[in-house]
Design a protein around this nucleic acid. Sequence first.
DNA 1: GCGCGGACCTGACGAATGTCATGGGCTGGG
DNA 2: CCCAGCCCATGACATTCGTCAGGTCCGCGC
Lengths: 197, 197
Amino acid sequence: MIRILLADDQHLVREALAALLGLEPGIEVAGQVGRGDEVAAAVAATRPDVVLLDIEMPGGDGLTVAAGLTGVRVIILTTFGRPGYLRRAMDAGVAGYVVKDARAGELADAIRRVHAGERVFDRKLAAASLSEGANPLTGRERDVLRAATEGGTIADIARRLYLSDGTVRNYLSSAIGKLGARNRAEAARAAEAKGWL
Amino acid sequence: MIRILLADDQHLVREALAALLGLEPGIEVAGQVGRGDEVAAAVAATRPDVVLLDIEMPGGDGLTVAAGLTGVRVIILTTFGRPGYLRRAMDAGVAGYVVKDARAGELADAIRRVHAGERVFDRKLAAASLSEGANPLTGRERDVLRAATEGGTIADIARRLYLSDGTVRNYLSSAIGKLGARNRAEAARAAEAKGWL
DNA sequence: GCGCGGACCTGACGAATGTCATGGGCTGGG
DNA sequence: CCCAGCCCATGACATTCGTCAGGTCCGCGC
């Protein structure tokens, strides 16, 4: 019996996945949590074989949580097929990455293979990740761009990050250039789409 | 037996929901589709009692699809708890609105009540919808803001909508004012968060 | 220890954006 | 019929943005 811990912030989706996996022979759902910061405790309490982690959750995103887990095999299960996320997931040492529009059989298959010691990554994403190369943004450019998506003015961003206006303008300009965009809105969208945010 | 048609673009979520609802006594999943433009045909083919519609799908969003359906009772089942969506859903004549982080029991309950002729709407959203009032944006302001989220310049938006630059600037300015924002990025975010887009 | 790249800053300049005043046409309600 | 509200437009204006050219620190690898 493979014991699963489910982490997803949407209650209904979580229960639905539990119902789905419950139908699979040899797989058993040992626990469920709805927040990133509850995962570690739940792992300690239920000792699952495999953790299914969503990325976007309150209380810490799945990629960060995954990096902190030891002694369990982790599969990222998310809506977002962003190449950058896959890369970050691999860096975090996860054993699998499945997108939410995979078929039910694929998920079960991934769980069994991961439990058997294999690593399982979405094919399309893996290809996209290779063809696109690494994130071209520097750390600071990422910070500024992230703050820019919030919608504030340059002065707001500067205050939030304790930088001067001119510096913020420069980082934005550089990020815009690297991403082939024409303004920050476009740059932010492009970076987000690739999971570089 | 209440017969359900499921419409959701994420395969895994769809199958998971089907598994979940399959466990409920008196409820049966009669069919599944993954695109908005396949719903009408599937309704004709499977004659369900209740349709569960996601909002964001390829091939036409759930709210538009719902407005075109007759002879079935529709429940919107979505991630997005945006007051404006609820209002539009009611205008489209749907019988229920459930968010994806409801409990499994709530969904089954909503299905049974809707099938019995009641209308079931998420309480929190209904309250938010009342307290926030109606969408203050005019049709054109919405169009322009929507185009602005794409990230282009004013000239781009003007070309896409066959308007003059000045007109676009005016609509944006007016939308920014109505939404209490300080630039279009902020305005776009605000409008999107409320489902006014 | 020298070079390199990243973080941080300044100042200046043109282009894009947001605001305002103003006006015309069109539609639906009183 | 007249008014209110939306749609579309013009032009002028101040502000904000995006770009560019510089410059100072610091850590790292060779």
